[in-house]
């Protein structure tokens, strides 16, 4: 199977600081992955890990400084804005803020068919509005509403309708459930799952919510400071996380059960600044298992049971209890 999206050694740098002391900040630091047709791939990480930047780079919204992005066999990182436009028909984006990503002055009916006008696609807009709204489970009454008259969940549905308007091959969804109540979260995820089956969509989901990933993604990548620390099939990553950061993230999810024993891996200190990346393994400053080698040598991503893990001492069989006292 040929991948629909191929990302190779992608790097994004930002220039920061005052004029005389400009510095390059590496937001995404050499990331490779691919997404197959019909597959859901999730990018997981905490704030500042570079997941949104990566998604924007894939979509051509963020210039890249090295590496390549290939979509349906075509390099897209070298295209100009104008050349990129026709490709966007096949590569739709759902932005983070469900209400904020809708123009407040347009009615829902116009919002869901905006893509037809932008790409000059001849269509009966009235019947398209009907088709799209019913696909996302909204009635035609909504066509006359403005975004401020929608609840968060409804606004998200409109966002989904906009994304799938022109039958894309790939949907990039940035935090599709952020800010939604749990009872509504499920609705949006079920909807995305259904559409994926029905339309054969490939999806790139960006989220910090691991529970969401568990249920929707086929494969996942965990990001830390702009790098992938662990990539692999979702099921396996969840059952036996190999990278200490993955294990810590998984254990940092309080479950709604007061009787669950909590063997938590707590991470000391804060996420380092991207301008002062730690030497060696970049996670060593917070890793409860860090040894001398981790402080000096950068770990390569190695293949372990169908996964790629960037760690010198990957955890076997999931999380061992961390050592009580860290030797320093």
């Amino acid at each position: 199977m040929t991948a629909i999206l191929e990302v190779k050694y992608l790097e994004v740098t930002f220039r920061v600081g005052p004029m005389m002391r400009r510095q390059d900040l590496l937001g995404v630091a050499g990331v490779s992955f691919d997404v197959n047709p019909g597959e859901t791939f999730a990018l997981v990480g905490e704030s500042g890990s570079g997941k949104t930047t990566l998604a924007r780079a894939v979509n051509g919204l963020q210039p890249i400084s090295a590496g390549s992005v290939t979509f349906q066999g075509q390099r897209v990182d070298t295209l100009s804005v104008r050349e990129m436009k026709p490709l966007r028909r096949d590569m739709a984006m759902m932005f983070q803020d469900p209400v904020g990503s809708l123009s407040p002055r347009m009615k829902v009916g116009d919002l869901v068919t905006e893509a037809f006008r932008i790409h000059r696609v001849e269509a009966d807009l009235q019947s398209e509005t009907e088709r799209l709204l019913s696909l996302v489970g909204l009635t035609m009454d909504f066509a006359e509403r403005f975004p401020h008259q929608l609840s968060g969940g409804q606004a998200r549905r409109v966002g989904v309708a906009r994304a799938i308007a022109l039958n894309p091959k790939l949907v990039i969804a940035d935090e599709p459930t952020a800010g939604l109540d749990v009872s509504v979260q499920g609705e949006v995820l079920n909807l995305l799952g259904e559409l994926r089956e029905r339309l054969g969509l490939a999806m790139l989901i960006i989220t910090h919510n691991l529970h969401v990933v568990h249920h929707v993604a086929d494969r996942m990548a965990v990001m830390y400071l702009g790098r992938f620390v662990e990539t692999g099939p979702t099921e396996e990553v969840f059952s036996a996380p190999a990278h200490p950061y993955t294990a810590a993230l998984l254990s940092a999810n309080p479950e709604p059960d007061p009787d669950k024993a909590q063997d938590r891996i707590t991470l000391p200190s804060e996420v380092p600044s991207l301008l002062a990346r730690p030497e060696g393994c970049e996670f060593h400053t917070r890793c409860p298992w860090a040894k001398d080698k981790c402080r000096k040598v950068v770990p390569d991503a190695t293949a372990i049971n169908g996964r790629r893990v960037a760690c010198h001492y990957p955890l076997d069989e999931g999380a061992r209890p961390p050592p009580k006292k860290e030797p320093s």
Binding site: S183, G186, N190, N209, H214, H215, V216, P254, E255, P256
Partner: peptide, 24 residues
């Protein structure tokens, strides 16, 4: 009961159909 069901953290088994509370 429904709210607790909806929490994806409670679904330890992977599922494609997550529970919801329909209505507003």
């Amino acid at each position: 009961a429904r709210l607790l069901d909806c929490d994806p953290a409670r679904q330890s088994e992977r599922t494609r159909q997550l529970p919801t509370i329909p209505g507003e």
